[in-house]
Design a protein around this nucleic acid. Structure first.
Length: 414
RNA sequence: CGGGGUGUAGCGCAGCUCGGUAGCGCGCGCCGUUCGGGACGGCGAGGUCAUGGGUUCAAAUCCCGUCACCCCGACCA
């Protein structure tokens, strides 16, 4: 993409009323636009990041036999009444509205009930199980207070997956496969080393649910870590967990984290409540077992910004950067411009994503923008370098700089 | 939802205490010089001072209401 064609602009100053680092940087770099408190639009560069995160998630969900779908934002009141979750006393973040004929509908803050309702249509026999479906959905939650930029909004993109099984054992096995898939996802997103499978509250069927918590100062959670045994426990269940697992509390390290994923074993409670049953091999009606698995796509994006950014701006891991290379051409020397165009074509032709800074700006501004946007590799071409037939390559993450011939450069960028 | 803070040009801010009809920086447009770390000079465009009401000869400024935004807390599948 040529930056001269990109409609967004970078700005020096972040909006005054925006304190969180992720929102400041993403707004300054032109990745997101704030519509209102806790509600952000994703612009071309930000959308690229979102799509890359989603693609990584797809590549890990599909192998565990989950099928992608997309449910609806408008939801029926009756479905939620079956499990008692339509009431504002039980769920206090509902956005509710009415159709023209006064029918009450909800705006989806979660999709567990609608998914189960939908699956009733397709599951009748044990031969139909197990099954797993997932989607990327914009969740709408009427939070009392939005905060932390894109990390806790009223509207955000979430990947939610649901699996249905004919036995508790089968669900348990799948649940563990999902945990491993999630581990691979966070590793690929560049936050694997700081992300822990954490015991948390909330299992309807099991004593604990599992959260994926990433160490992050901007996070809202506190967990206790036992690095030796690789155990992590959310503060909210610390007393129960310590008792249950026979852990000495003094061995635990207290850290601040952001929840980037959460998985639940519902047992058969929800399916029983909603009347999703199937015929087993003996011809008898049996209960189905439900698991639920979420990842906050936009929250993960915010966490990555928070964790990896430096004083110059964002630092994207290559896997989710909006482009791999930021190509800068300096000056208006015709040969330089031609060679820059050619290099842009060559890289693009090899499937390498390039942000080509073909704007008529000074060197300092281009360098600053490359750093603010956090593109992994910066390649510069100028008349000075042209004289030696060299390109300058700078790695965003560590600032290491090299002067390379075109062949060396292409070899390096793969 | 409780407490606190803030709304003035696209963005960041000053002006408000002590009322007299709005200013600075960035950005934007044109001209010239510059051109490897956010250049410089000149000219110029751009504002219902969040909003509704009140006080006053006169309100960005004082008073009351409302809305929005931010922070702390509570909340958080």
């Amino acid at each position: 993409m040529r930056l001269s064609q990109l409609f967004t602009k970078t700005v020096r100053d972040a909006p005054g009323g925006e304190v969180s680092k992720n929102a400041q940087l993403l707004i300054r770099a032109g990745f997101v636009y704030k519509e209102m408190a806790g509600v952000y639009a994703y612009l071309p560069l930000g959308l690229r990041v979102i799509e890359k995160i989603k693609q990584i998630v797809r590549e890990e969900m599909n192998p565990i036999d989950s099928q992608e779908i997309i449910m609806t934002s408008l939801q029926r009141k009756e479905i939620w009444e079956q499990t008692g979750r339509w009431s504002d006393e039980t769920v206090d973040i509902w956005f509710k509205t009415k159709l023209k004929d006064e029918t009450e509908v909800g705006l989806g803050w979660s999709h567990e009930e609608p998914i189960v309702e939908m699956l009733k249509q397709y599951v009748q026999s044990y031969k139909d199980l197990p099954l797993s479906v997932y989607q990327f959905q914009t969740k709408l939650r009427n939070e009392l207070r939005a905060k932390s930029g894109i990390m806790r909004g009223r509207e955000f993109v979430m990947k939610d997956m649901y699996s249905l099984h004919s036995s508790a054992e089968d669900l348990e096995a799948y649940y563990n496969r999902a945990i491993e898939a999630y581990r691979r996802i966070y590793a690929r997103l560049g936050i694997g080393d700081d992300t822990y499978v954490t015991f948390a509250s909330g299992g309807a069927f099991t004593k604990f649910s599992h959260e994926f918590q990433t160490i992050c100062d901007a996070g809202e959670d506190v967990i206790y870590l036992h690095r030796g045994r690789n155990i992590a426990i959310n503060e909210e269940v610390i007393d129960d967990a310590v008792a249950e697992m026979g852990i000495n509390r003094d061995e635990l390290e207290k850290v601040k984290t952001a929840e980037v994923g959460n998985i639940f074993n519902f047992g058969s409670q929800k399916t029983d409540d909603m009347g999703l049953r199937f015929t087993d091999a003996n011809g008898n009606q049996a209960s189905a077992y439900l698991g639920s698995y979420g990842i906050g796509i936009t929250r993960v994006m915010g966490v990555v910004v928070e964790k990896l950014a430096d004083e110059k701006g964002i630092v994207w891991p290559e896997a989710i950067a909006p482009a791999k290379v930021y190509l800068i051409r300096l000056g208006d020397n015709e040969a330089v411009m031609r060679h820059a165009d050619e290099l842009y074509a060559t890289l693009t032709g090899r499937g390498i994503e390039v942000l080509y800074d073909d704007r008529d700006l000074r060197a300092g501004q281009k360098f600053a923008d490359a750093e603010l946007m956090g593109i992994p590799y910066r390649v510069t071409i100028s008349d000075r370098l042209e004289a030696d037939n060299k390109f300058e390559l700078v790695v965003r993450q560590n600032g290491v700089q090299e002067l390379l011939t075109q062949d060396e450069l292409l070899a390096k960028l793969g």
